[in-house]
């Protein structure tokens, strides 16, 4: 996915829209802060996701991190490649490191998210 076309949350998830389907992942900043990712506790297909509520957990060597849904919706597919190779999130956070696909219930919720430029500025305030 082109990171410049994605929308971002303050909790460092991204969402990318393709037709009726949304891809969800974590930002490059997020993966760099988490460090080496060694396990992804993927959501279940069919799970109802709620904006700003936990949808899954990503574990690095040093700690576990909650991942929050950017919008309301339903999980329709998970990236099972992460089961064998969770480090894909470190390597390609905007590509093969996507976490799940969702059917969005309310597209207007996207408006409250940051675009790439705004998110880049936001990250600067978060970094050391």
């Amino acid at each position: 996915m082109n990171k410049e076309n994605l929308k971002y949350t303050k909790t460092h998830e991204w969402i990318g829209i393709e037709g009726d389907v949304a891809y969800i992942g974590v930002s490059d900043f997020a993966q760099s802060q988490m460090g080496d990712i060694v396990f992804v506790d993927l959501p279940k297909v069919g799970a109802k996701a709620e904006k700003e509520k936990q949808i899954c957990v990503v574990e690095s060597v040093k700690s576990a991190f909650d991942i929050y849904s950017p919008v309301n919706g339903e999980v329709i597919e998970v990236n099972s490649a992460l089961s064998d190779n969770p480090a894909l999130i470190n390597q390609e956070p905007y590509g093969n490191g996507w976490i799940c696909k969702m059917k969005i219930s309310d597209k207007s919720q996207l408006d409250s998210l940051m675009d790439f430029k705004t998110y880049e500025e936001f990250v600067k305030t978060q970094a050391h």
Binding site: T11, H12, V26, M34, V58, S63, F65, D66, I67
Partner: peptide
């Protein structure tokens, strides 16, 4: 994901 105080070690 929120970066907050997380226990390590």
């Amino acid at each position: 994901m929120i970066f907050e105080k997380v226990p390590v070690f």
